[in-house]
Design a protein around this nucleic acid. Structure first.
Lengths: 402, 402
DNA sequence: ACTAATTTGTTTGCCGCCCTTACGAATAGG
DNA sequence: CCTATTCGTAAGGGCGGCAAACAAATTAGT
């Protein structure tokens, strides 16, 4: 450290010609994914590559089964019509997996982002040996995969959604309190040798929203369940923080002298808007489908429930206003279990946000996720397939690629 | 939008061989900048490039005056010793500029990050025509530049620090309330044709901390002045948010029913820890060197001042705990004017952070900036030079580079 | 219907860049 | 003094994108 510089932030690695090719393959894939069927010339125009280069790239992607030629693509203007290229619907696919407290899930998503297989079975995973849970998930997964293989799909990457924190080592769960897991390695789940990635379920719910939901790519996705978590999506990427613990909205201090929280501090948001607090205020017992019961109470006009939801919405809005001032997102999306309660939570949230957000907060910037409980599993499948799209070189003939 | 994908987040552009070269030139520069004098072989080892490639890259950087050969670099082991390469101390330099409420500043920083010229003059810029201010800054800048040119330096990029928000258009100030500026174009400031970038002074203070301060590259830099701002540094990069307004810590709600703030909401942090509030509680009048007076009062043991600082520290700590839970930084750095008050603010801040941060918060992760008021100007100079280091191709022979 | 214009996709030749291999240079150890 | 080791450079090769030219397919004009 003789010079005064801190270590460089990005790109610690050399760029080779393989990397260039890799990046351009990815560029073609992402371009086609984003802008529908395109001709080679259109891809060239959009990306800045030459038509010749695009031809070469497309051929490579084509033989790998990632792209398909659909047929003529009349442009309306004079000239030879292009041949439409689209993401293949019968080739590599993504496998999404989920371990929930009360269920297991598996889904298969094709390159276009379409769900081609969906399986969800009830299972009481609370304090059940992790091996056992993973073994059952493996059979569920196999069923979904064989079903998908019938329609010409071949899973090539898997992502597992867990209600807990992901470990440093790839493919491991550091801790999942509601499952009773601690340092569980999920590798070996895919005997087929698929690369497996483990990710927090709330984060995957946010990614599902990014890819299947509204157009924005900078938002805070609130997903309240046992705890209140916020996934920050910034520039279309998950923001994980320095150590991967970003997004703990539930323990933002709301009122410094408030009630004591399980975390030891006072007045955390969770004490005002957490599931337990809301149910208590509404006079309901906790339980498996507590949120659903609360929603029906509110629908019936139960005063107590409505007041509790009102207060919770305000608390959420206040805490979110702070987050918005700090992070400056384009939108806030309410997802997770609380999405079902949106009708009653939103007014208070919106009121607080408009009052407290320093930048004008348009009403449309606060919305409810349309994916609901399906978010995490869907996000897992999409994340798996997204991996392929953003680095297709892994599946390509790979003359000598790493 | 026939496919379900949102637009891709990154890399909307094709990669060509020039880009590859560009990236590798930058890689060599950042490597040398970060790890002191290195031989070509050492650079090759660190970056993954071949010795041959490094030789070629180094030669290009050498003829551009960006690198210098220092002499033999004995390794201790057997074998021919390498020739040490270091960032040049007499070539391209960065020009930092600053417009404050009460002063103007200019500095010249060489590639090694060393300050080689420093000029700061008092000037009452409050509600003075922007043209006039910029004209005076230009003369100050010229003096600093001619001085630096005497020692063999040649400024090639400039960054201007302003106490306000930066506009969308490059080189413009959207609004600087304390200066009375609105949509001011700062281009034309550098008649020499240097590329000029405008940036918020607090952000530059944070960057100065990144490059001249402690080793961490993920931190929240609190800089309290008129308002309370937080610059978020994530992975060694400034985090600006979707529209560039991230970091408004001053208006995080601290107590939902607190006193009304100038922003219209209730109980913002600024009402508890802002300069005005603290001075009022301490029984001091506002004014130019109010912070200094407050510090001396505290040093003398003034009960009132100590109590006010205690409360302010607690409030800051509470709000920061929320931010820490949300963003998960490695450290919090107290900078700006409040750095001088660190002795009295830190205890309360630390107490609140340890109590409220969900992840264990080590005491060393909260610290006071050693740069004080020099941060923004220093950061401007460093940012200018950093630009060169991270894209040296701009200064290279450029056979036909864009 | 026929021609001109236009756009697409491919082919060919070229250049740039990194990699591999080989070689001279410079130092430490015996 | 000789050998092992490491450093920097030079020569040859492969790969990948670019520029230009060309054949194919369609529209527009007469």
């Amino acid at each position: 450290m003789t010079h005064g510089w801190a270590p460089p932030a990005r790109s610690g690695r050399a760029a080779s010609q393989q990397d260039m090719r890799r990046q351009n393959l990815a560029l073609v894939m992402t371009t086609v994914a984003a802008h529908g069927p395109l001709s080679r010339a259109a891809i060239a125009g959009r990306t800045g590559l030459t038509r010749a280069a695009v031809s070469s790239l497309v051929e490579e992607l084509n033989t790998a089964g990632l792209l398909t030629e659909l047929g003529s693509l009349p442009s309306g203007r004079a000239g030879r019509p292009g041949r439409a290229l689209a993401l293949s619907e019968r080739g590599p696919a993504g496998l999404g997996l989920e371990v929930g407290v009360g269920h297991l899930g598996a889904c298969v998503v094709d390159l276009r982002g379409e769900v081609r297989g969906w399986l969800r079975v009830a299972a009481d995973n609370r304090n059940r040996p992790a091996d056992e849970v993973l073994a059952e998930l493996a059979t569920v997964s196999r069923r979904a995969v064989t079903e998908a293989e019938g329609t010409g799909l071949r899973p090539v990457a898997a992502v597992l959604a867990v209600p807990g924190l992901v470990g440093e080592a790839p493919g491991t769960v550091a801790t999942a309190p509601n499952l009773g897991w601690r340092d569980v390695a999920a590798s070996g789940l895919c005997a087929q040798g698929l690369p497996l990635e483990v990710e927090n379920e709330a984060n995957l719910g946010a990614l599902a929203e990014l890819w299947h939901g509204t157009g924005t790519s900078d938002f805070i996705h609130v997903s309240a369940a046992e705890g209140i978590g916020a996934a920050l999506v910034v520039g279309g990427r998950l923001f994980r923080g320095a150590r991967g613990f970003a997004g703990e909205l539930g323990h933002v201090p709301l009122c410094p002298d408030g009630p004591v929280c399980a975390c030891g501090a006072r007045g955390c948001l969770e004490q005002y808007a957490g599931e337990e607090a809301v149910l208590r205020q509404a006079g309901l017992a906790a339980g498996e489908d507590a949120v659903r019961r609360l929603a029906s109470r509110a629908r019936e006009g139960d005063r107590c429930a409505l007041a509790a939801l009102e207060r919770a919405g305000e608390a959420l809005g206040t805490a979110l206003a702070g987050a918005v001032n700090l992070v400056d997102p384009e939108a806030v999306v309410l997802g997770g279990a609380y999405a079902e309660l949106g009708d009653w939570l939103l007014p208070g949230m919106r009121r607080e946000l408009t009052a407290r957000a320093l930048r004008r907060w348009p009403p449309k910037a606060l919305l409810v996720s349309g994916l609901g409980r399906r978010g995490p599993l869907l996000g897992a499948g999409m994340a798996a397939i997204r991996r392929i799209i953003e680095d297709p070189a892994e599946l390509t003939v790979s003359r000598s690629r790493r």
